[in-house]
Each structure stands twice: as C-alpha cells, then as structure tokens.
Amino acid sequence: MADESWRLPNSVQQLAASMQEPPSQYLLREQELLDGNLAGAEMLEPVPTIDLGLLSASYDLEEAAKLRSALQTWGFFQVSNHGMEASMMDSVMTASREFFHLSLEEKKKCSNLIDGKYFQVEGYGNDQVRTQDQRLDWSDRLHLRVEPEGGRNLVHWPTHPKSFRMIFTNTH
C-alpha cells in the first residue's frame, strides 16, 4: 500500500513550533504570486456590505440586487445590521481565542479526523488534502455546525473553555 501520510498534515501550530520555514506545500509559487490573487493585495473596490435589516424587514430590492451581485462576483460579503449584540459577539471572540490558546492535545480532542485519518469538515484541524502538490492554508480552524440545532454534532465541540458550548448554543 502506498504511503499517503501527506494526506494528514500536521497542525500549523505544531509546524510553527518546530520549523524555521513553512513546508513547501504552504508556499505560493512565483507564478501564483504574479497572478495577484493574494490576500492583502490592493483591492480595486471594497468588499460588499449587505444590510440584513433591509433584507429581512422589507426585502429591499436594491439590497437584494447587491446581495446577488456580491455572491456572483465576490463569493462572500460583509454583513451589517444583523441584530447581534456587541456583548454576544465579544463573548464569542473571547471563547474562540481561549479555545485556540489551549494545548494542541486539548484541541485535538475535537479533531476533524475520524480515527486520526479520515477527513470530515466538522471539528478542529486543517482543510482536506486531496493531492500531494495541493497548496495548503497556513491556518488551523474549528468548524462547527450551529444551526439548525438538530444538526449540531456536539462530539466535535470543545468542553474547554467551560463557557464555549453555552455561548455558541445560545447565540440566537
């Protein structure tokens, strides 16, 4: 059986602690740099902002057109007037930071790998690696399904910090 250990990248936290330079699969090639599709590159126009208050209260046609355009051209957008309290967003950010400051062993308890080798979207880890020459993001992430409530798989949810589950399950 062929060695497919490349399919299971180490966490970025682990790599950063043990190396001077990122491994080659995290580096962009010269041609990729020249293409100019880089985060942080100067943008000709700002990321679109969609006012959810206008969409949900009155279904403003102009705002709906902005949403359609943002999805078709950018693929994402910034949201304003969403109705979430600043204190709730602060709690979410604090709990998230606390989670990412935990030890690697503690975070791996929420791994997105089944039996340490089969990728699933939910949980803590990296993107799925499909090919040996795939460019990888220099990030570790925690992906959790929050809604619908019946779709939550709490097996992948952290138990630390203690407030994490309460904050993320009571956000609506």
Rank of each mutant, 00 (worst) to 15 (best):
A2L: 14
D3Q: 02
W6C: 02
W6I: 01
R7E: 11
L8K: 10
S11H: 04
A17M: 06
M19V: 09
M19G: 06
M19H: 13
E21H: 15
E21V: 05
P23C: 13
Q25K: 09
Y26T: 03
E30Y: 06
Q31F: 10
D35W: 09
D35M: 05
A39Q: 15
A41N: 14
L44Y: 10
E45G: 13
P48I: 03
T49S: 11
D51G: 04
G53H: 04
L54E: 13
S56R: 14
Y59N: 07
E62V: 12
E63N: 01
A64N: 04
K66H: 05
Q72W: 11
Q72M: 12
Q72I: 04
T73W: 15
N81G: 06
H82Y: 08
E85H: 11
A86S: 14
M88C: 05
D90N: 05
S96L: 10
H101V: 02
L104W: 02
E105K: 10
K108L: 13
C110K: 02
Y118I: 15
Y118D: 14
Q120Y: 07
Q120D: 02
N126Q: 08
D127Q: 14
D127R: 10
Q128T: 11
R135D: 09
S139M: 14
V146L: 10
E147M: 06
G151P: 01
F164P: 00
F168D: 00
H172S: 15
